[in-house]
């Protein structure tokens, strides 16, 4: 078998001004994981190559790194599967300060977890003698989030974190979902209110990198969506993100008279989202409105009503029934 090129990012602050790619050549042994290969490089070619690893069975979360541009666990990856044109590119995770080679500073990641009160707040009056009861269905609501191994793959590839390091980030939000939906937790509303602030659940832009890179069932994007559903269900809507969702409901469902019927009313969405009585908010959307009017790009003033809208209206009239049926 031909040797594969491993292009590995190297950086040593004592010597280098910035990271560079070093080429190693290695024949990939049959069935070898990417971690096996990196270990072989370290142990037989260059002992100074620096990275983290421990369990090599995808449960400790140590060995996440960017492989061909995207974060993944080296131990969970068959090396042969990631060779592109005879080469694999290996770089440190993104959105974290570099320490050396593939090792990054994880403190910002663990700090984000700290911010969501990542522990159960049980009812103080509970009985201690036995376990608290939880139905199988309630367990299922928190099972996926509970599989997170804190590898930070989601954090590494999160698009929002690239532009805003204050964002809570995917893992912390998934961790928060695990408590918001935990039938044993007594701080549901407090948690949702906190998570509804700027930097919280509504700041996620759905790039879905987290759900794609996550090596477990935690899949943060889906947990964030569940958090938003919880916020809407508990009517914690005093923010632009939640009002934006309400605007969809009102214009597509026609639940507010004259606003729409089956389609979005794009004139209504921004005004409703910033809030009708939010002067600063309204002012902030005027320039784009003006620009669009000048070009004739502004949506028609009268809302578009689809044919057979009655069918859609009938569905929205049973809005709460749909929610109940979904929870079943």
């Amino acid at each position: 078998m031909a040797k594969t090129k491993f292009l590995v990012s190297r950086y040593d602050a004592a010597r280098d001004t910035k990271p560079y790619l070093q080429e190693f050549r290695l024949e990939i042994p049959q069935g070898a994981t990417l971690l096996d290969c990196i270990n072989l490089i370290k142990w037989t070619q260059d002992g100074t190559l620096t990275y983290r690893m421990s369990c090599r069975s995808a449960i400790c979360g140590s060995c996440s790194m960017k492989v061909n541009g995207h974060a993944r666990l080296a131990c969970k990856t068959q090396a042969a599967d990631v060779v592109i044109d005879g080469a694999v590119t290996i770089e440190p995770m993104g959105n974290l300060p570099l320490i050396r080679d593939l090792a990054v500073d994880l403190e910002p990641f663990f700090d984000s977890i700290d911010r969501v009160k990542p522990y159960l707040v049980p009812d103080e009056s509970r009985q201690w003698k036995r376990e608290m009861l939880q139905s199988h269905d309630d367990y299922r609501k928190i099972e996926d989030a509970s599989t997170c191994i804190m590898c930070a793959s989601c954090w590494s590839d999160c698009n929002v974190l690239e532009v805003d390091p204050r964002f809570l980030g995917p893992a912390a939000l998934a961790k928060a979902q695990r408590f918001v939906h935990d039938s044993r937790d007594s701080d549901t509303i407090g948690r949702i209110e906190f998570l509804s602030r700027v930097t919280g659940m509504w700041d996620c832009t759905h790039c879905a990198e987290c759900a794609t890179r996550c090596p477990t069932d935690a899949k943060p994007l889906f947990r964030i969506k569940e958090l938003r559903t919880a916020a809407m269900t508990h009517k914690i809507t005093n923010n632009n993100g939640a009002r934006h969702v309400l605007a969809f409901r009102e214009s597509v469902g026609g639940t507010v008279p004259g606003i729409g019927g089956g389609m979005l009313n794009e004139n209504y969405i921004p005004v409703r989202s910033v809030g009708f009585f939010n002067l600063d908010g309204i002012l902030s959307i005027i320039p784009v409105g003006v620009r669009m009017i000048i070009r004739g790009k502004n949506p028609p003033i009268l809302p578009h009503i689809i044919d057979k809208f009655g069918e859609v209206r009938a569905m929205f009239r049973r809005f709460n029934d749909y929610r109940k049926e979904y929870r079943k």
């Binding site: 522990y119 159960l120 049980p122 509970r126 201690w128 003698k129 036995r130 376990e131 608290m132 009861l133 939880q134 139905s135 199988h136 309630d138 367990y139 928190i142 099972e143 509970s146 695990r178 408590f179 935990d182 044993r184 937790d185």
Partner: peptide, 18 residues
């Protein structure tokens, strides 16, 4: 184990919720 559960450990459950 009861303490662990009260600390929030996510255990699988039986039909009665135990």
């Amino acid at each position: 184990i009861t303490e662990m559960e009260h600390l929030g450990c996510v255990f699988s459950r039986d039909a009665e919720g135990r």
